[in-house]
């Protein structure tokens, strides 16, 4: 049980630092997205395509949101 606790603490510390780095570099990702990315990378996903695809996804979403907003306003 104490093992589990210490693991959790370590993970929290790691996540804390990762968030700080992300803030420093102005990576605009919220905590949850960031943690998902960390887990993906820890699972062996290639980081560069991941980064690129997240940006692409965000762009796509923004486009969709804009177009739906336009259609809604129409």
């Amino acid at each position: 049980m104490s093992d589990n606790l210490s693991v959790t603490r370590e993970a929290m510390d790691a996540m804390q630092i990762i968030e700080e780095i992300a803030d420093l570099l102005q990576i605009g990702l919220d905590k949850e997205t960031l943690s998902i990315c960390v887990r993906l990378i820890e699972n062996g996903v290639n980081p560069t395509p991941l980064a690129h695809s997240i940006l692409n996804l965000k762009r796509e979403c923004a486009r969709l949101a804009a177009s739906s907003a336009i259609s809604a306003s129409d």
Partner: peptide
């Protein structure tokens, strides 16, 4: 992880 940040 660093690569991810850098690429991003």
């Amino acid at each position: 992880l660093l690569e991810f940040f850098f690429a991003y």
